[in-house]
Amino acid sequence: MKELRDLATKLLAEGTVNVVLGWEEGPRGVRPAFATDAAAAGRLVFDPRCTQNLVPYLSPRRTQVKKLGKAAVVVKGCDARAVAGLVRETQLAREDVVVIGVRCGGVIADPASPEPLSPATVADRCPGCNSREPKLADHTVGELPAAPPGESRRDVRIADLEARTADERWAFWQDELGRCVRCHACREACPMCFCERCVADKTQPQWVDSSPHPRGAFAWNVTRALHLAGRCVDCGECERACPVDIPLGLLNLKLARVASERFGYTATDDPAVPSPVGSFQKDDAQEFIL
């Protein structure tokens, strides 16, 4: 903790950055912090409650942080993939941000949780994580803790869904997506949703029905999932933001696996790896071409 605070204080003091994005203790668990001075830097924390991904604040669509000047951002391994994603898709120049990586042993799904990290409280994405030490970081702090506890719950759920018939899956998603109220919180929380005008907001023509009618809810959620296929960095923010608890992570993970199997692309924190969209390889599967 001291290492992180000292580094943030130093970066601010020497003028390398104007603001450090991290986490601090809030009235209800940890919350995102925007430290612009030594006092604020001294309040930064990192512990298993720091589940929030702070990288969406660096997306050009969110100008508030940009107004503060050059930023440093504290990232876990999963968040680092979002930095790489923004760099890969020319939303962020790598040299415009200082990346402070934290070695991570898994986080709790709820940042306000009073419970300690355990197989019961761990976030869905953490068990089996293989990026606990961000490679793209300029500075990496902390000791590498023990691996996240527990087993992947999502693997079980995806296997369960895959075992069902198409009709049963359809019924399952109708039930899940039928709850959608079209608040678009999933979009707002997502680091990779950076379009100036989302296709869901396009009116001429209106491709996506804007009402929370099942048809609109399906059109929206399927569009969102497809636009993130292979691009999703699996930070879990969409699912955490969803007020009606739609298991968006299942959709994202399934599509990520398809992208990996079909195109050999896995979301990574190496911005030099080309985006799956538009990177053509001779051996790409093309059996859909008749």
Binding site: P60, R61, E89, T90, Q91, F194, C195, E196, R197, P274, S275, V277, G278, S279, F280
Partner: peptide, 13 residues
């Protein structure tokens, strides 16, 4: 230009 976010997927394809 007003709506383009500059992700350049179009350039790549």
């Amino acid at each position: 230009a007003a709506l383009c976010a500059g992700c350049f997927h179009c350039e790549r394809v």
